[in-house]
């Protein structure tokens, strides 16, 4: 009798026990772990084949002089790492990648937030504006690059023509030829494509802000600005964190618009790390150096994301 009564007691304990708890052969949780593993196996296999394996391969290639998939690569130790550290274009493109990231977070994230606030405050037509403003996100980045390269065309482009028709010719610029302007100009195109997603996320976040807080602020005589600072933005904290993280990751992945609109030029003025990786890997077939740059970029992405999340967590406490 005693043993019979002990069984349900032990099951109950095991069900609430941490995974490290000691289990015996007749422990029913063994089955649930087996089932979980079986269900996870396809996903794990896909992840291993398409993510883990390439990562391992990239690390391996970075220690070789691989000139392509069909060549025999020799082990060259840290040569590629030394080459990368001595290549001024690598450092310049890294700096530009940071600048690109900053522009993207501010332009795409900022525009997404502003438009989310504007659309949410509308009494009518929310769905129309939400849909319309999201549309650019559906356009492929390569197509966006072609469209905006034409907008910026110095001779026939929409932007300079518009400025001229408004008697503002003095504001017309070489949007893609001025080395100090080119990265910003390309980023505007990229951010135009990206802001729609961030706007939707912010709109979703705004719907979760407790409306009674606005009522309370109203009673306290808060201005619209004060409500934004003290009610809306704190209420959006979680979404804001997510959007900034997402924008940073998307910013790091920036490639298509730069490649299509400037090809990294003029004279490397818009070369970011991803375009340089492509150039090394697929144009120069210098896979060893390209692999090192990929690793650098991954480390950069991890560092930025972890640092940002730690900073945010510290702010939250």
């Amino acid at each position: 009798m005693a043993s019979k009564s002990a069984i349900p007691e032990r099951v109950g304990e095991a069900a609430h026990a941490p995974p490290t708890a000691v289990r015996t052969e007749d422990d029913p949780t063994r089955d649930s772990y087996g089932t979980a593993f079986a269900l996870l196996a396809p996903a794990i296999a896909l992840y291993a084949v398409f993510s883990l394996l390439p990562i391992v391969a990239t690390v391996g290639i970075s220690f070789t002089n691989s000139g392509g998939f069909n060549t025999e690569a020799q082990f060259v130790g840290l040569d590629n790492y030394v080459r990368a550290s001595e290549d001024p274009i690598v450092w310049q493109s890294l700096l530009r990648t940071f600048l690109w990231l900053f522009y993207h977070v501010v332009l795409a994230g900022g525009l997404g937030l502003v438009l989310a606030l504007a659309v949410s405050s509308l009494a009518r037509g929310k769905v129309f504006f939400r849909t319309t403003l999201f549309l650019p996100h559906l356009v492929s980045l390569a197509v966006v690059g072609v469209i905006w390269a034409n907008i910026y065309d110095p001779f026939y482009g929409l932007l300079n023509t518009l400025l001229a028709s408004l008697n503002l010719s003095h504001l017309a610029q070489g949007w893609l030829s001025d080395p100090f302007l080119v990265l910003f100009s390309v980023n505007v195109a990229s951010s135009w494509q990206g802001f729609g997603l961030y706007m939707l996320l912010f709109i979703a976040g705004l719907q979760n802000v407790d409306p009674t807080l606005y009522d309370a602020a109203e009673v306290d005589g808060a201005s619209a600005w004060q409500k934004l600072i003290h009610v809306t933005l704190p209420g959006l904290r979680e979404v804001l964190t997510f959007v900034v993280s997402l924008a940073m990751i998307n910013g790091l992945k920036g490639f298509a618009t730069v490649f299509v609109m400037t090809n990294g030029g003029p004279f490397y003025a818009s070369e970011i790390i991803t375009t340089y990786i492509y150039r090394m890997a697929f144009q120069a077939q210098d896979h060893g150096l390209a692999a090192v740059l990929c690793i650098m970029m991954s480390v950069l992405a991890i560092t930025i994301t972890v640092t940002f999340n730690r900073w945010r967590a510290r702010g939250a406490t």
């Binding site: 030829s177 080395p179 990294g264 030029g265 003029p266 004279f267 490397y268 003025a269 150039r279 144009q283 120069a284 077939q285």
Partner: peptide, 20 residues
């Protein structure tokens, strides 16, 4: 050589753009 091609094209842009 292929190793110099990319630099060659970038330098042309730099010469016309007044960057080098």
């Amino acid at each position: 050589p292929g190793s110099a091609l990319d630099t060659y094209y970038q330098v042309i842009g730099g010469l016309v753009g007044g960057q080098v």
